[in-house]
Design a protein around this nucleic acid. Sequence first.
DNA 1: AACTATTTGTTCGTATGTATG
DNA 2: GCATACATACGAACAAATAGT
Lengths: 244, 244
Amino acid sequence: MSQFKPIRPSRVSDEVVKQLRDGILSGRLKAGERLPSERDLAQDFEVSRVAVREALRKLENSGFICVRHGATGGAFVQELTFDHLTMSFVDLFLAERISIEDLYQVRLLIEPEIARLAAQRITPEDAGRLLTALEEEERQSQSMEDDIQRKTTVHFILAEICRNKFFEVLVRALMEVTRRVVLAGSPDFNFIHPAGMHRPVVEAVLAGDAQGAAEAMRLHAIEFGKTLIQREKTFREKQSLSSS
Amino acid sequence: MSQFKPIRPSRVSDEVVKQLRDGILSGRLKAGERLPSERDLAQDFEVSRVAVREALRKLENSGFICVRHGATGGAFVQELTFDHLTMSFVDLFLAERISIEDLYQVRLLIEPEIARLAAQRITPEDAGRLLTALEEEERQSQSMEDDIQRKTTVHFILAEICRNKFFEVLVRALMEVTRRVVLAGSPDFNFIHPAGMHRPVVEAVLAGDAQGAAEAMRLHAIEFGKTLIQREKTFREKQSLSSS
DNA sequence: AACTATTTGTTCGTATGTATG
DNA sequence: GCATACATACGAACAAATAGT
């Protein structure tokens, strides 16, 4: 094997991306801080403003910065959130690189584990939030959009309670795809996903019953998974319809 | 709650991104196809070339297109891969939004399940590939880089065998972070992760013993996880050192 | 309310580098 | 070598948004 690496003409904007990215990841540039103006950056890097702008677009796309318009505007370093990762997952699903069956299988594995961990790690403050969310979701809803929103909240909170950011990311991704698939179907969501469905899970978690929580969540996931897989066909049809 | 959404002045480049993205995701623009040249796109959208370029940078950043230089160059639609998602995970890890303990916990959950599924779904062709990879990894290695590469291969193949793209993505992300953490440590990797470690897992999978495969993988994950968590400290130190 | 300064957003023109035929 | 087609890059200018005076 050769010790040399292939030389590919690097782009100026990519070098700018690299330096700014490193600055942010290393902590030299902290969240909330403002980067120099585009003109100043162009001067510092000794490149054109266009190159700087292309770099900013990339960093923006990755969630490292956000750019505001106007006098006090500019590029601001952002705390890296899970949103962009979630959208990447959604993209893979939309591009049909990941099937609903795959998602369901993963969900069936991780959601009971999350419930188990939540039961073990729940604090009094968590209990309050969880209960509020449950009561909120059991009220009458205005629209299907609202309805789904509330019913995913319990899942989010459980993921937060188990204090594992990786699980949190996964639940976000799973829920966002689920949300889109469900929304494509007819507005009888409340019939498919009755209000009381999360109650056994939440009660077991509140009681600290890890085994019970996991089992209750497993049953819920199995039950709901069936309708989800059915709905996916409707979703794909609508998708291909809108593209023609 | 208001029914109105906040109005934010949209950027021209973002509108270009949106239209091209929709075209790709809907399948109107297929993988391998070439987009019109920057000048033509600028004419079609009735915007400047700079706006088009900024849009292309974003799409490039998301993995939807790749741009080649020269006479036959241009923007080519790409089959959406898992690479960008993997790198987003790595970013979250580097930004310390996800800890090594979180990763380890997820790994401990999914890897045995992958082994179990692989044992159930393995085909003769898979068996050949898996065995080759195992024999390859048990040879003497040139460098730690090579060593890690070969030892992750078995994990990749198992994820492929279980025919779940979501698991495949997760394994890629886990392995890439693991790779970086391990590389930061001293080059005694072969001592920490002896050559024979994957053999029990592979043999159980080849025998179609789902339960045995899961258990063997679980033991491997536990064993390896310990050293991984130890190494993470070294990694973070090196990271903060290089940033000063 | 009007003006000004600052900053991003957008466009144009032009020059250069790179790959193909 | 030369022509062609393309991305890459730069500079200058003006438009639009935002905040302070």
